[in-house]
Computed example of a mutant assay.
Amino acid sequence: MSKTVEFYFDLGSPATYLAYTQLPGICAQTGSQLIYIPILLGGVFKATGNASPVTVPAKGRYMFQDLDRYARRYGVTLKYNPNFPINTLMLMRAVTGMQLRHPQRFQAFIDCLFYALWLEARSLDDPATVATVLTRHGFDPDEVLALTTDEEVKAVLKANTEQAVERGVFGAPSMFVDNQLFFGQDRLEFVLEALR
């Protein structure tokens, strides 16, 4: 039986974006399955007493320099988003709703949002900007917005976030292989080792 990587993610994290660019290749290389689990990073921070590195100015500056190094190493584009940090509640409800209601379009949905945030540096806490991005990628903004108010969708995102905290998650990206937690896109080599 092939191994799995449980990928707890929030679109608003640039480190999560970098992990997202690498994990499909790692899973293909090892014959493993990638399981996306959307969470609300703000909820994780609140439950664990953690905070974004940008709350410490020197740490925030260093973090983006380090993420740039990794982006170059991975051969991917990462553009600093001046709107960071953004409130991702609406986005992560939409992501959860697409996974729940339209799983066949889930990958294309997160692809377009990650692209808009971390390659185009769009302000995705602005509903009009989100609508423009979604329309351009063939999604109906009204249908997506309806998902964000769906009670089952809200409950699933809340449950995912609570489950993540119960498992020891304190930030994103967080990945589990064989119930072993790996935090941060800079731990992908250990994820690869665990899958092998």
Rank of each mutant, 00 (worst) to 15 (best):
P127S: 04
R167N: 14
V95K: 08
Q104R: 14
D126V: 06
R69H: 10
Q65F: 01
L145Q: 06
L124Y: 01
G171M: 10
N87F: 00
T77V: 15
I110R: 08
M92L: 12
L78V: 06
P57H: 13
A51N: 11
H137K: 00
D111F: 08
Y62H: 13
C27S: 04
W118H: 13
G43C: 08
I37F: 04
L67K: 08
D66E: 14
A121Q: 10
L41P: 02
R61I: 12
L100A: 14
G171R: 09
G25L: 05
T148K: 12
K46T: 09
K79N: 12
L34Q: 08
F45K: 07
M63T: 09
N83Q: 08
R167P: 06
L145N: 07
E143V: 04
E166Q: 15
G42K: 09
A146R: 13
R93W: 06
G171W: 07
L157N: 04
H102N: 11
V44N: 02
G171Y: 11
T148G: 10
V156A: 09
A131D: 12
A121R: 07
L119V: 01
R73W: 03
N160E: 11
Y115K: 13
G97D: 07
A51T: 14
L145C: 00
G43Q: 10
C112Y: 09
D140F: 02
W118L: 06
A131T: 03
Y62T: 03
L117A: 11
N160K: 12
S52H: 12
I86A: 08
V156D: 03
A47P: 05
T135Y: 02
L134Y: 02
L145M: 01
G75V: 03
M63W: 00
H102A: 12
T148F: 11
V153Y: 05
A131F: 01
G49W: 11
K79T: 15
E120N: 02
D66Y: 07
T148V: 09
L89E: 11
P85L: 10
I35R: 14
D150R: 03
V156Y: 07
R167Y: 07
I86V: 14
L113Y: 02
F170R: 08
P38N: 12
Y80E: 03
P57G: 07
D66F: 05
N83R: 11
R136H: 03
L78Q: 05
Q107G: 05
Y62N: 08
V165L: 08
T30Y: 08
V56F: 06
G42D: 13
D111A: 04
Q29F: 07
Q163C: 07
N50V: 03
T135F: 00
V169C: 12
Q104V: 09
A58S: 12
D140R: 04
Q65N: 06
T55H: 13
T96N: 08
G31P: 11
K158G: 04
A146H: 06
V76Y: 01
M90V: 13
E162R: 14
V76P: 00
A121P: 04
A131R: 09
